[in-house]
Design a protein around this nucleic acid. Structure first.
Lengths: 215, 215
DNA sequence: GGATGTGAACAATTTCACAGCC
DNA sequence: GGCTGTGAAATTGTTCACATCC
């Protein structure tokens, strides 16, 4: 399939074709009127804009179950990420290979960052160690941090942090699940699934109040 | 701190106080004019709206590194999630405890779902097994699926799927990292960091084109 | 006096619809 | 004839500002 129309792409993505064309237009005029978009050319342009064509060395700090899962994750290489090193504070792990990469001791963290020109770090340590690891990464020159530890990290200006909370997505599913159940029960006086029910929210002892309610 | 004002909450969250008040107003009229919001009452109302006050039994299928990391993840219990069972296809794992919960063989998947009234399933298997596991979960009554496998799952209407791609967040960091670098280099003719550069995007052999460009 | 709750004003985003080009 | 690229219209989201209530 050498070319594709905005209509086809939009249908595949579940969005409006005008939106897709307008979004693409912000990247440049990469289509041909009457024909569509050249697939290979479009893929390259989008890849470049997203930074997929660059090589990004990253370090993963904290090689527990999650760190090991990340090290084994196949999706990184295809998006331009290269795991420059795995780092853990446990001396017993040092030298052992995980996903084919030997684990290094955290004493060498600064040297590893500098030798490899790493600007992105992944923190998969327990919560208690995360801020300290973060501080060392930043001091060594890392400017973007992906944090899996259940802590809010504080960093100086100019450093980006993104926090991944593995339970947030479950939370969202549970929210929709709750609404599904609510709709089924809507006939017998249950709270409707829409957010618009402003008037019914009296604070009295009204049955939907739990023991936790303040006096 | 028994009460809190929209102003204080907004400052803490980094948003406008009017937005916060308007958002809260969609849940109901839970504040007191001249006083603010009763913290404990507000926490309960938001928790209830999000489904945090319910008990959600979940199963985790695929107990590799990622499945084990999820089983050990502390954040689930506090948000109302209860790991009803860990399931894996490897007979060697069956009976072994992970995070204190014995792993069950996937032969028992349907029975486990039904005995525990599970409506939410987590898939942490390799990509090749994910669709098959998904089909079995759905057939057994699961209506929400959190998918960590790098595959797009197809499900019947009425079933929610959320896909977590661990490399997406890295991607976002790399995107911003690229822009940081671009801004530093902006003086010497590099592509500007803003998206608005429509006119310069000629298709000719213009130096920023790679070998992958179509003929 | 002080802070909510909310119409109205404003801003951003999405969609329409069609001129322009292949 | 077909499909992009984009002004203009429609829709959606955010902020202002103030009447209202504790």
């Amino acid at each position: 399939m050498p070319t594709v129309s905005s209509e086809e792409l939009a249908a595949a993505a579940g969005v409006n074709s005008a939106k897709l064309r307008k979004d693409f237009s912000y990247l440049g005029s990469y289509g041909t009127r009457g024909v569509g978009y050249d697939v290979e050319y479009l893929v390259y342009q989008i890849s470049r804009e997203l930074g997929l064509t660059q090589d990004w060395p990253v370090v993963i700090v904290g090689i527990g179950n999650l760190g090991a899962a990340l090290a084994n994750y196949g999706g990184f290489a295809s998006r331009g990420f290269r795991v420059a090193a795995l780092i853990d504070a446990d001396p017993a792990l040092a030298g052992k290979p995980v996903a084919g990469i030997p684990v290094r001791h955290s004493d060498d963290l600064e040297k590893i960052i500098q030798d490899n020109g790493v600007s992105i770090g992944v923190i998969a340590t327990p919560a208690g160690a995360a801020q300290q690891v973060c501080d060392r990464l930043v001091a060594a020159g890392v400017t973007s941090i992906l944090n899996f530890a259940p802590t809010v990290l504080s960093v100086p200006d100019g450093v980006d942090v993104r926090k991944v909370d593995l339970s947030i997505e479950l939370q969202i599913l549970a929210f929709h699940e709750q609404r599904k159940a609510g709709e089924e029960a809507a006939a017998d006086g249950a709270v409707p699934a829409t957010a618009a029910r402003k008037q019914s929210a009296g604070k009295g002892p009204d049955g939907d109040m739990p023991a936790v309610m303040p006096a």
